[in-house]
Design a protein around this nucleic acid. Sequence first.
DNA 1: CCGCATCCTCCTGGATACTG
DNA 2: CAGTATCCAGGAGGATGCGG
Lengths: 123, 123
Amino acid sequence: MKAKLKYFIEVKGEYYNCPIELTLSMISGKWKGIILWHLIGNDTLRFNELEKAIPSISQRMLTKELREMEKHGFIYRKVYPQVPPKVEYSLSDLGRSVIPIIKSLSEWGSNYAQNCGKIYIKE
Amino acid sequence: MKAKLKYFIEVKGEYYNCPIELTLSMISGKWKGIILWHLIGNDTLRFNELEKAIPSISQRMLTKELREMEKHGFIYRKVYPQVPPKVEYSLSDLGRSVIPIIKSLSEWGSNYAQNCGKIYIKE
DNA sequence: CCGCATCCTCCTGGATACTG
DNA sequence: CAGTATCCAGGAGGATGCGG
């Protein structure tokens, strides 16, 4: 055992026991991983396009997760005031700073899935 | 947009929409991050030592998280049949394979905390 | 020392319906 | 097209007490 210094972290009114917990809380949520993944690969995406890219997500959850990511400062939301509405989402600098993490999560998961799981294709 | 190939992953009866979600599910849980962190730095740790290293965790949660990580194959649990009991936990090869991820989570979180949060020391 | 068993609360996320 | 609003079920996680 090294130092026994105990501390906690406070960010925007939330409390964390360690930086790992903090980071995980920012990218956790059932759909944030895959949403980030699509935004990494696509520069900007409309609400509609994200829905199509993630067929099993509901409108409610897509909205909810996007709002949280916006609050975290991970993404920008650009609204075009027109009818029908058009809204574009894109990564901020902070969002881009987690790309390496998301990629390593993705790679680790892919390896693990190939060794210990099964992959099913949907038609 | 690239390929529109849709799929899902099945591992041990659980289903995931993408490898990122899969990986996150393995390391998510309020205390797994900090438990892994301590096991990374200490080779083997007794139940007791983990409790002291993570003052705010309850016995129930420590047991619960350790059981899940054992089920995931991340850690070994070695029981010494003696009175009073002695149990040692250590990382498996699979557990060690996530060290780079945990470290990058930790680094990102530390940076973020320093820029956007506050760190409080407990006595 | 290292747990397990109960009970309880809150939060996440799903289903469904409605709107500017 | 891009959302709200409501309702609801299940599970995560906390508090407490007992046991080999």
